[in-house]
């Protein structure tokens, strides 16, 4: 059986921090603390049809996903940012938000496992 493919990649983070596990752990913790708040904000903005707010929250989260090598989730959030920013395909946004939430749950569990490996 083929091993499950990772949806995160800490290569960039490792290179940026010079492999300093304390720094890597700090950044991972900050991300898994901050991202759920951003997801909640995005849901709220969607419910209130606040497209500027939704675009802004998606925009702020986008580069952070890149730092953890979560390319799939980064592409999803780019789509949400585009749809909210241009106010197009608005009926697709809840589907994309749900897809993103599912991706994020996997990201979080992978990053929590990485935290254990880092031992910090």
């Amino acid at each position: 059986m083929e091993p499950t493919k990772s949806i995160t990649d800490l290569t960039y983070l490792k290179s940026l921090t010079g492999g300093a596990s304390d720094k890597m752990s700090k950044y991972i913790r900050m991300f898994i603390t901050g991202a759920p708040v951003s997801i909640q904000q995005m849901d709220m903005y969607f419910l209130n049809k606040d497209w500027a707010g939704l675009r802004q929250s998606a925009h702020a989260l986008k580069p952070q996903l890149g730092y953890f090598g979560a390319k799939g989730a980064e592409n999803l959030i780019k789509e949400i940012e585009r749809m909210a920013g241009d106010q197009v395909d608005l009926d697709q946004i809840p589907v994309q938000l749900e897809n993103f939430r599912k991706q994020y749950e996997l990201i979080q569990s992978e990053l929590e496992a990485s935290l254990k490996e880092l031992g910090n």
């Binding site: 940026l16 921090t17 720094k23 700090k26 950044y27 900050m30 991300f31 901050g34 702020a60 580069p63 952070q64 730092y67």
Partner: peptide, 14 residues
């Protein structure tokens, strides 16, 4: 920067 992670990463790097 209003994003704590982004802010910390840049600050640490510099």
């Amino acid at each position: 920067d209003d994003e704590p992670l982004q802010r910390d990463m840049l600050k640490d790097h510099l």
